[in-house]
Design a protein around this nucleic acid. Structure first.
Length: 504
DNA sequence: AGCACA
């Protein structure tokens, strides 16, 4: 079994064949270019390109053996090597006598893409990052991931072949944007072909597979705890069991992060039930409770490692808490239960614990005279929005729809039982249009806009308005394409120009 | 830079 096969394999001379094996091709090489290369020597009757795990190999088959010999002979004595797109191509006789076309898989356009993530840290790319990247092209129905000899791979299912094709065309050979990866994760290049599949089977939501069409699919035990495989997050650390409660710690807190800022940032992903803030190890931490784990997962994945304010300020580090239900004793500036409108907002006076105090505290007092004026009357909401608009018109207007649900309304100021429907967390999953994530509605889009009304201090000059366009080679992204959080966008390097190679 | 997807 051991030493049988490897002997003939790398001999420098193959017996002649009308099939030639080419290697060191650029990944963009097309069948047409292969034909062009071979045509001077004879009739090319068949080609096969993008072969091999790096897809930098190809075969061309001549009508006649002598034509193949002519080509090999020519380049054997030529001073000019064979080239495709300026890249030297190495030629030899194939060890097969004809090209066999497995026409089924990679060349037939379908709605499911086979994605190979290449790079040292490929397996540190989470399914959620893949989801973000591919969601830019349309609604991603399902993703499964697996490890093969080719490396870390994923199948990504779109509604139709057209959408899949646009994603494939734009992303094949490109690298995942740096800002979606942790700093120490190396470049991760995507190689994309079509898969033969048309509908993936996803039985559970897990860290290996997701069905975004069915958010109520049970979560796999393996995704929760000890299912054999250690789950590795973007930061290279083992991931905790998922939970509906997130633990946020805030790094580089140059600017005040208030309860309301947190509420705004985190409620972009769904209703927030409770928040508790506390100091730990000299830093600020907060527990944020969503009604369900899925919402927390989405929020965590979108926000982890990102900064609340542009410029690297107030960087969020998120993990799953072991809590599932926070007990908020009193609503104050550090803790709040948004599910119980009865609990009054209190200025850290535990003495009134349990005794609802009917709105005696003017809300403005909570905020230490800051420019932010809480809404004390539901009827005031529109004005409040206008107020944001005057502060930061462009940003306010560009807020995604969901942000309009995030207008902070102190629970204690709501007439009990009289609140607008958006103040009914605990029911319903995410605040999304019916039909769950229609195409184009990436749930994670841009939660980290500067919370306009909440900017508690002056911001570093030039850090607004966070509207930088995507810096990508033109024509490679579909119109309207956007990755979320483009406030974090790094310069061009992450999506190298055409034909880039990774050697330098 | 070394033979076709596991």
């Amino acid at each position: 079994m051991a030493s049988v096969s490897s002997q003939q394999q790398f001999r420098y001379t193959q017996p002649p064949s009308k099939v030639l094996h080419l290697r060191n091709l650029p990944w963009e090489c097309t069948e047409e270019e292969l034909i062009e290369l071979g045509n001077p020597f004879g009739k090319v009757v068949n080609t096969k390109c993008n072969v091999g795990s790096n897809r930098n190999q190809a075969f061309i088959e001549f009508a006649d053996l002598n034509q193949a010999i002519a080509m090999i002979s020519y380049y054997a004595s030529s001073s000019e090597p064979a080239q495709v797109r300026g890249k030297t191509v190495y030629l030899q006789y194939s060890n097969r006598q004809e090209i066999v076309h497995n026409k089924t898989a990679a060349d037939v356009a379908g709605n499911v893409l086979l994605v190979t993530v290449e790079g040292e840290d490929a397996r540190l790319v989470s399914i959620d990052v893949l989801h973000l990247v591919f969601s830019a092209f349309g609604f991603v129905h399902k993703i499964t991931t697996f490890e093969k000899t080719a490396g870390f791979q994923a199948l990504v299912q779109f509604s139709d072949a057209e959408t899949a094709t646009s994603a494939k065309d734009a992303l094949d050979g490109r690298s995942i944007p740096r800002y979606l990866l942790s700093e120490h994760v190396g470049p991760c290049t995507l190689k994309i072909t079509y898969s033969g599949h048309s509908d993936l089977t996803v039985k559970f939501q897990s860290h290996r597979s997701r069905d975004y069409t069915n958010p109520y699919l049970p979560v796999a035990q393996s995704a929760i705890e000890g299912g054999g495989q250690v789950m590795i997050g973007l930061d290279g650390k083992r991931l905790e069991a998922e939970s509906n409660v997130l633990l946020a710690s805030i790094e580089n807190m140059q600017y005040a992060v208030t309860l309301d800022v947190l509420h705004m940032v985190f409620s972009a992903f769904g209703p927030i039930q409770k928040i508790a803030m506390f100091d730990k190890n000299g830093g600020l931490q907060a527990l944020i409770q969503y009604p369900d784990t899925q919402t927390a997962v989405v929020a965590k994945e979108a926000l982890e490692g990102h900064c609340i304010y542009d410029g690297g300020f107030c960087k969020l580090h998120l993990s799953y808490s072991r809590h599932t239900d926070l007990s908020i004793k009193v609503n104050n500036d550090r803790s709040r239960d948004y599910t119980i409108p009865m609990i009054p907002v209190v200025n850290t006076q535990p003495s009134i614990l349990g005794q609802p105090v009917p709105m005696t505290v003017p809300p403005a007092q909570q905020y230490n005279g800051s420019q932010y004026t809480p809404i004390s009357d539901p009827a005031m909401i529109p004005q409040s929005q206008a107020g944001w608009g005057t502060t930061l018109p462009t940003v306010a207007q560009s807020m995604p729809l969901q942000m309009h649900n995030n207008i902070y309304m102190p629970a204690g100021n709501m007439p009990p039982g009289n609140g607008p429907m958006q103040m009914q967390p605990g029911n319903g999953p995410m605040q999304m249009p019916p039909g769950n994530m229609p195409p184009g509605s990436i749930p994670l889009q841009r939660p980290l806009q500067m919370p306009p009304g909440n900017v508690p201090m002056q911001m570093p000059p030039g850090s607004m308005p966070l509207q930088r366009p995507m810096q990508m080679p033109p024509g490679n992204m579909p119109p309207g394409m956007h990755f979320p959080n483009h406030d974090m966008l790094q310069p061009t390097s992450t999506l190298p120009a055409y034909g880039s190679d990774r050697t330098q």
